[in-house]
Design a protein around this nucleic acid. Structure first.
Length: 642
RNA sequence: GCGCCCGUAGCUCAGUUGGAUAGAGCGUCUGGCUACGAACCAGAAGGCCGGGUGUUCGAGUCACCCCGGGCGCACCA
């Protein structure tokens, strides 16, 4: 609502300035620093001052005097050195909100692809992976909330070095074949992804102590690529099982996917050779004959030596496959995968996985017009290579629409390592944070963290609601734990390194997910309590007219809460353009804060005057809906009670 | 060496793309529960926005130079 009105008012100024001064000025609408200054500030006079060579203050006064009535605006005034402060017509604004106007979502035809999660399927997910998924999933929800069509892809690198290492661990260190590994998978007392976590650390350590054994890795990679033999079979078994574990972990956070494109199909369906032909044909890469890259196909430009795409033994590096994948996402490769169902969600939606065998599914993916790759900042260089590849092929437009949605890593605070019993070197203890390492098995497993959070939340819920059933309390605790976790991962802006601290993540007070939930739960408790007392929730539209609304909204407290709650769409819009899910979190928190204050100050149910009571109930209901919606975009549900 | 990121209250972080008197949470201190359940609210203390020079009506925000920290720059991903 606010968003569309703001645009409308800016447009009125734009039109006036165009006619009056003959200047096509892009008019910005800002939020005044203080609420007493009104709802919208127009700084246009500052820009005009340059063109007109007059004082901004004078120009602002002239515009205010001449612009005439603007719809939805009650008053305008000049302030500061030349701001035009706009005051909205409160009654009209509230009436429009009451009738549910101005909430249209502009559906755009283009399809946006968001790729996120992308965990190597060789071990359990850790806290860093959760940041990726929470950011990606929330961004998807933000886009969908404003009407965009979005396809969520989770790329599975099931033929890479990391999977190969775990396979080598099973085969060479543990001497286990596919049958034994299958037994392990079927054993309910073993968490297979956790087992692989340890095995990966074990073989990484072994490689370090016995460099000659790296031959195992090469042999395993070859076997996987050939797709034959026991090692290849093991690779499939390991990768598929771990992918299922990852999806189950992500499901706990309400993170869902549309399709799982796999590297094995990139290879078997010859996506790479198609891309390779294109790259050679358009001279995007060249065959190096001398120097340290002799015998390799190299992409020039990004670094002094260029980036090797095809090794001297003829195998392609990951980035090469990624170029093929990126081309496919835009529909530029002239090839597609086949698809079969991988699993389905409780609402029946199917997650599809790529396959190399023709199927009757009729499914098609890709052909996006814009692609967001949610990948941490350490891989910026590789992402630049991919984009440079598109450019070298002449796909400049697609290169511009390839967005590396980067974010900083999640590290561990030294205190956290101490809490978790992770030994640190003297040097590490002095650092601000310690990087997690899969190879060293150093990190916080996602499911362990979620379990801890749920246990904590359950303690709190049970202490407050011993009368409720265990099932109900578990349900609420689960929702609270997820809210705490998702909010914790989202409240930091993307380029902030999160030094993970268990005690902070476990907090349910202050700037946290549970605070949002608590605020929404309290709003609903008011409405529920009213009905329990035998009163009915009024029909707001028939009991409140414009005049009544205007009367009540003379109270600044009420107006500010209503205004704030009506800005959800505006907040989402600016968060999308800034690419910052954290902005949505911040908005939700401020909104919850405003309501907590309102809740404390105004006893809604005990209000004696009818008009005011109905108005307060409507405010409560409006706030509740807006906060629930915003929390939903963060992937946070509002529990029945807490 | 080259490239990118960061430095804001005791701690952890925001800061609407250059705007009005720099904000929040935690922590500390003070006050508020017979309940629309305090996982809350109100108030207080706490700042050379790392340092310097510039750009202009105006800089936490932009440019350049220092200082301090992080991450990249593989025939790993």
């Amino acid at each position: 609502m606010f968003h569309s009105l703001e645009k409308q008012i800016a447009a009125a100024f734009h039109a006036h300035i165009q006619i009056r001064y003959g200047i096509d000025l892009p008019v910005a609408a800002e939020q005044p620093r203080q609420s007493e200054f009104g709802e919208i500030a127009i700084p246009a006079a500052f820009q005009l001052a340059r063109h007109l060579k007059q004082a901004p203050k004078r120009i602002a006064a002239e515009i205010v005097a001449e612009i005439g009535p603007v719809e939805g605006v009650a008053a305008m005034e000049v302030a500061g050195n030349g701001y035009i402060n706009v005051r909205l017509d409160r009654g009209a604004y509230a009436e429009a909100l009451l009738r549910g106007e101005g909430e249209e979502a502009a559906e755009t035809g283009e399809k946006i692809i968001v790729e996120h999660t992308n965990i190597n399927p060789n071990k359990a997910a850790h806290i860093g992976h959760l940041r990726n998924a929470a950011l990606g999933d929330t961004f998807v929800r933000m886009l969908r909330a404003r009407g965009n069509r979005v396809e969520v892809q989770n790329y599975i690198d099931n033929t890479g070095v990391q999977v190969a290492d775990v396979v080598a661990g099973f085969h060479y260190l543990d001497h286990k074949g596919p049958a034994e590994v299958q037994t392990l998978i079927d054993d309910a007392t073993v968490r297979f992804d956790y087992y692989c976590w340890d095995l990966y650390a074990k073989i990484s350590g072994y490689y370090k102590d016995h460099p000659e054994s790296l031959a195992w890795r090469a042999e395993t990679l070859h076997a996987i690529e050939a797709g034959e033999g026991e090692l290849a079979e093991l690779a499939h078994l390991v990768a598929d099982t771990v992918v299922a574990a990852h999806l189950a972990t992500m499901q706990r956070l309400d993170v869902e996917y549309d399709v799982l494109p796999r590297e094995s199909e990139i290879l078997h369906l010859h996506f790479w050779s198609a891309a390779f032909d294109l790259l050679k044909e358009r001279k995007a890469i060249y065959f190096e004959t001398e120097g340290k890259n002799a015998g390799c196909w190299v992409m020039p430009g990004l670094s002094e030596e260029g980036k090797v795409i095809v090794r001297s033994d003829g195998t392609v590096v990951y980035t090469g496959k990624d170029i093929a994948y990126q081309l496919w996402k835009f529909g530029l490769l002239g090839k597609d995968f086949y698809y079969r169902p991988w699993s389905s969600y409780s609402d029946g939606r199917v997650v599809w996985v790529s396959t190399d065998e023709p199927t009757e599914s009729g499914q098609h993916f890709g052909h996006g017009s814009r692609v967001y790759n949610v990948i941490d900042s350490r891989q910026s260089y590789l992402q630049d290579v991919v984009v440079a590849g598109l450019r070298a092929l002449g796909y400049n437009e697609q290169a511009d629409r390839s967005i590396h949605f980067n974010y900083e890593m999640v590290a561990l605070s030294p205190r956290c390592c101490a809490d978790l019993g992770i030994p640190l070197s003297e040097e590490d203890r002095k650092r601000p944070y310690v990087e997690v390492s899969g190879r060293k098995g150093l990190g916080v497993k996602a499911d362990d963290l979620i379990d801890t959070l749920i246990a904590r939340a359950l303690e709190e819920v049970v202490s407050r609601h011993p009368e409720n059933s265990e099932e109900e309390n578990r349900r609420a605790a689960g929702q609270i734990a997820i809210a705490a976790l998702r909010y914790f991962l989202l409240k930091y802006t993307r380029n902030t390194v999160i030094a993970f601290d268990l005690q902070e993540a476990l907090s349910f007070e202050g700037d946290t997910g549970p605070y949002l939930q608590y605020s929404a739960v309290r709003a609903r408790n008011i409405l529920r309590k009213l009905e329990e007392r035998g009163e009915e929730i009024p029909d707001f539209t028939s009991e409140l007219n414009r005049e009544a609304l205007a009367r009540q909204l003379q109270w600044e407290d009420f107006w500010q809460l209503l205004l704030g709650a009506s800005k959800a769409d505006s907040a989402i819009e600016s968060a999308v353009s800034a690419g910052e899910p954290a902005h949505v979190a911040k908005y939700a928190f401020q909104l919850a804060q405003a309501f907590s204050n309102f809740y404390q100050k105004y006893p809604v149910i005990h209000e004696a005057r009818r008009e005011k009571k109905v108005f307060l109930l409507w405010m409560t209901d409006f706030f509740r809906r807006q906060l629930a919606r915003t929390a939903g975009i963060l992937g946070i549900q509002v529990p029945e009670y807490m």
